[in-house]
Simulated scan of single mutants.
Amino acid sequence: MDESLDSRLAGMAARLDRLRELDPPKREAFSSMRTAGRRPGGYIMFGADRHGHRNQPLTEAQLGALEGAMGVALPGDFRAFLERIGTGAGPFYGIDRYQALLRDATPECARPFPTGERGPFFTGDDDDDGLEHGYLPIIERGCGDEVGLVTAGPRRGHVVNIDMGDQWILGPDFLTYYDTWLDRSIDQLSRTPRPTHVYWVL
């Protein structure tokens, strides 16, 4: 692994540790929410109830299976991220688990993603099922919306914000996107008075 990339990922791992310190699960919240018959709400960060600020690195065999299913190699920085840090803690509901990534890893990922900075989700063709190629869904935003990783084409390695039924908007490269989430999350959780809820916005 490139030394600068290794150093960057080590910095991310350290900030993830800091994030866990700033937003631990609250036992009293879990207890009260269970009695109300709803999902436990033990974290300040939106989405952390699902991933608990935990990450699960992927094995070489799992990474190879993803690439085999897609018919194209994962972008290098994202591959290194999955190997070193893994799925789990991340923006919105977090980086999708391996099983979900594998489910969405299809040969469509090897077809070039559309050019430009944004575009419609539907093109208007009679047989149009929406944007389906050139990216791997990696983050669930809620209400059917998602964040994808461009896997083929000139913007390979960038994230793309996908509003189902509306439009897609290209974002930065994945590591910059994740860095920004970490920095903003830690900044907001470190404020006085402490927030009661932190929601990530792209």
Score class of each variant (00 low, 15 high):
T59V: 09
P25D: 07
A65W: 07
P195F: 01
M70G: 01
A10G: 08
H51D: 08
R184M: 10
S32M: 10
T123S: 14
I139D: 02
M33A: 14
D145W: 04
T151C: 15
K26W: 09
G86C: 13
L101M: 09
I186A: 02
I186H: 00
L22F: 05
R97L: 12
A80G: 05
F81R: 00
M164V: 11
V72D: 05
R38A: 14
F30V: 12
D128T: 07
L22I: 09
P25W: 08
L136N: 05
R8L: 11
F78K: 03
R34M: 11
A65H: 13
E146L: 14
Q188T: 15
G171M: 01
R84Y: 05
R118K: 11
C109F: 03
E83D: 09
V201T: 15
E117V: 06
Q56F: 14
R155V: 05
P193G: 03
D187P: 00
G11I: 04
P112L: 04
A14H: 05
A61M: 13
D127Q: 12
D187C: 03
P75E: 07
A152Y: 07
T123D: 09
L175D: 01
V159A: 02
L66W: 08
H158R: 07
T87M: 03
V147W: 06
G144H: 07
T106M: 00
D2F: 10
L9P: 04
R34H: 13
G119S: 01
G124E: 03
D187G: 04
G148Q: 04
A89E: 06
T192Y: 08
T196D: 15
S32I: 06
Q56A: 15
A73F: 08
L5Q: 11
P57S: 11
L175M: 03
V72Y: 05
D49T: 15
S7H: 13
N55G: 12
G157W: 04
L102N: 02
R84D: 08
W168G: 01
D6L: 14
E140H: 14
L175F: 06
P40D: 05
G47M: 05
R141T: 07
P114K: 01
D173R: 13
A80T: 02
R84P: 05
L136I: 08
R141E: 15
R34D: 14
V150P: 12
Y177V: 00
F174D: 00
L175P: 02
P137Y: 02
A69S: 13
Q167S: 14
S4A: 14
V201Y: 01
G88Q: 12
G148P: 05
R20G: 15
I85F: 06
G130R: 05
R84E: 10
R141W: 03
D166G: 00
E83Y: 10
Y135M: 15
